[in-house]
Design a protein around this nucleic acid. Structure first.
Lengths: 406, 406
DNA sequence: GGAAGTAAGTTCAATCTGTTTACTTATTCG
DNA sequence: CGAATAAGTAAACAGATTGAACTTACTTCC
């Protein structure tokens, strides 16, 4: 037999059925209120197939029936919605300065949040603390009568495609950590999907996946915080993430923006992070790592030095966004991370630069929408929860209901 | 009914059968010489299913049986190969200085080539000439007794996801051209798959798709010629290309490498193309657009000015490759385009820079393989042919054989 | 040389899936 | 109120994969 080669996807009748159940579920998720007839035309299935599939999804607690639609000359259809009261998803983010927890309904609605200041420490200690927090978290009343579909954890570092091991997280000082294996002993009773991902990639995924109606073809999330990273999600079918072999895709902080510029902690010169990042701003303005950057900076926004530093950082961000536009060409760019709270002194130069230069290659025809999230505290954690939902819907057998449902 | 939303993929039994036929065909394609039993374990299908599917692929002329395998204690398996004598693929490239034609067997083997000098002219004139060339080309004896699966055309410009219209090709001076519609009247008898794509993306696809054995997870093709562009192909299942909404993904020529640098023809300053591209080298060294760059430069390789220019361009290319490594993180980088013929004076600085800086973020553990193609004349055209094959195998019903076959 | 063992490939009834066709239900329009 | 229209359901049908039994073909061992 010849050497190793990848599996090709093939399937049996069971696979086909699960595929169709997933497709129906995704259709309802993306367009709440569709009827069985709508689904049949959308998904290219017959009414009969859709009918039986929907019935089984109703029994499993994934869907619920809604109001009768307006009739257009015949029997009115029955609206279908995700059953937001039966399952929930857990998302967490391990950040440099704290742990963040989120519980989401399948629609993406946030049910519970928790933001716990927590210092950088070892993987084991962090896993123990996060496990304890999650255990308490799941006892909150709004989650008591729901079933968990799984747990997703977002981390500030590079994760290879298999998603099992965190290769490097320079800002945490970690490398080669199998974080989910460390977490599991602390949550022995938890079942369902377990996964981890880079924080910017998780955020990108969530921003694309938890959206109804017309979804953009692709979405780039740029996370500007202590470091700077990005994630690209593509939404043709189920959202896919561009990861790169070593999980390095989107490590835009270390692209060279200024040949021969300042030395970066990575050893190269002129990296984007030397111009725009939490640590470079701190270094320039002499702000200690332990202090909150925004709090220390807010009273100093009149100082010429601060204004100048923020403007230069903003312009560099604009240039970075333009380069990303040209290399990735996403349909939509979302800017988040703690630095967005620095306000217009930082953001305006970035937006202005990007606006002024983005259409040079294509004329004025189309522009890319660029959205800034002011408070992105829970965006990555919610994105990790979104990944759990996607995995539950697509990759594995749909779980049976255990809590009573209609 | 709620607003527009995308189709979700669902399917019937026919879809499942085609999926399995495709999976089997891909398995044989990637690992020539597999037996039915190998396929069954690889593709997770039963021997019975594989047996009938293989029989139908043999009848259709896609596969042929080979020698008996060595026995390992039982009945030996019968090797299966792609039938390279039944179908062929046509690929063409419209370049700034000429038209290139390729005919490939399903294995990727090049059957015929043709390189025709052709000046930049209007889309209509080009389509007429290409059509005539293709017609003559298909009458060559090696193609006489084969069936064509379709035609793919590679072009130096941006093409949006639907692939139907060439948005902009600055080096040709074209914009918003439906090239395949212009070509069709000149080849009325041609059937099968018709497609066009950007030349770097087509090349990336071909380099990944026409490979047997262990294929890299992703491959980035960088095309350095008159302009500079790139294409990223990912090979988890069928190779997918990163295109971007406006087809701008991979337009690396216009990423800013040197803030405040020279003005680029796109209107911005310090674009990569101002440092490394056919036109910037011509401008710096005063070489006319109509002359062949390599021919004019070869006798001048001793001049300090030439040496300096090529070294600077090479260094910029190295920096660009590093930035691509960080934003895309492909498993393999392939460097092609006419500038690779400039030799070590240009290439060495690029490779040296890339080698020296690539592992700063991940330690010395893994390195990305970087391969240079010296003669990339037919790479893009062959890539377009590869796309035709992929489309024929995956997207549509497998055609019936018309020429007699075993 | 022959019998036993092992593995590849085939045959065919059984099972499971989506489809087709006919039917029931529920609303609008005249 | 009846005809028309459209949503949803039920039962027979068509088809693809499966599983078990079978045939084929080679190796190994006595």
């Amino acid at each position: 037999m010849p050497g190793s080669y990848q599996n090709q996807k093939a399937g049996d009748l069971n696979f086909l059925k699960r595929l169709n159940l997933s497709a129906i579920l995704e259709t309802v998720r993306r367009a709440p209120g569709v009827t069985r007839a709508d689904i049949a035309t959308q998904a290219q299935l017959t009414k009969a197939t859709v009918g039986t599939a929907v019935q089984s999804l109703l029994n499993q607690g994934w869907l619920k029936e809604g109001e009768l639609q307006k009739s257009s000359g015949g029997r009115p259809g029955r609206a279908l919605h995700l059953n937001d009261d039966h399952y929930y998803l857990l998302g967490a983010e391990v950040g440099v300065h704290g742990l963040r927890l989120v519980a989401c309904a399948p629609s993406g609605q946030v049910l519970e949040t928790q933001h716990e200041p927590f210092p950088c420490t070892t993987p084991d200690t962090t896993a123990a603390s996060l496990g304890e927090l999650l255990r308490q978290f799941t006892h909150r009343t709004s989650l008591q009568h729901r079933d968990s579909l799984g747990i997703g954890v977002a981390l500030p570092g590079t994760i290879a495609t298999d998603e099992a091991v965190l290769r490097r997280a320079p800002n945490l000082g970690w490398h080669d950590v199998r974080f989910m294996e460390l977490l599991r002993p602390h949550l022995p009773e938890a079942t369902g999907v377990w996964l981890m991902d880079n924080e910017a990639k998780a955020a990108a995924f969530g921003e694309l996946y938890f959206r109804t109606g017309a979804i953009p073809e692709s979405l780039l999330y740029v996370s500007a915080g202590t470091g700077i990273g990005s994630g690209l999600a593509e939404g043709r079918h189920l959202p896919l993430l561009t990861r790169g072999v070593q999980g390095l895709a989107g490590e835009i902080g270390h692209t060279v923006l200024q040949p021969g510029g300042l030395y970066c902690h990575c050893g190269n010169r002129g990296c984007a992070e030397t111009l725009v990042s939490g640590w470079s701003i701190r270094a320039t303005l002499g702000i200690d790592e332990k202090d909150d950057l925004i709090n220390r900076l807010t009273p100093r926004l009149q100082e010429p030095m601060v204004v100048h530093t923020l403007r230069r950082a903003g312009e560099a961000l604009g240039m970075l966004l333009l380069n990303l536009h040209h290399t990735q060409n996403p349909a939509e760019i979302v800017l988040g991370g703690s630095l967005t709270r620095l306000g217009p002194l930082f953001l305006d130069p970035a937006l202005t630069y990007f606006e002024a230069h983005q259409h040079r290659l294509l004329g004025t025809a189309q522009r890319v929408s660029l959205r800034v999230i002011e408070d992105s505290t829970f965006v990555a954690a919610r994105g990790a929860a979104a990944q759990v939902l996607a995995r539950a819907i697509h990759d594995q057998a749909l779980p049976q209901a255990t809590h009573g449902s209609s």
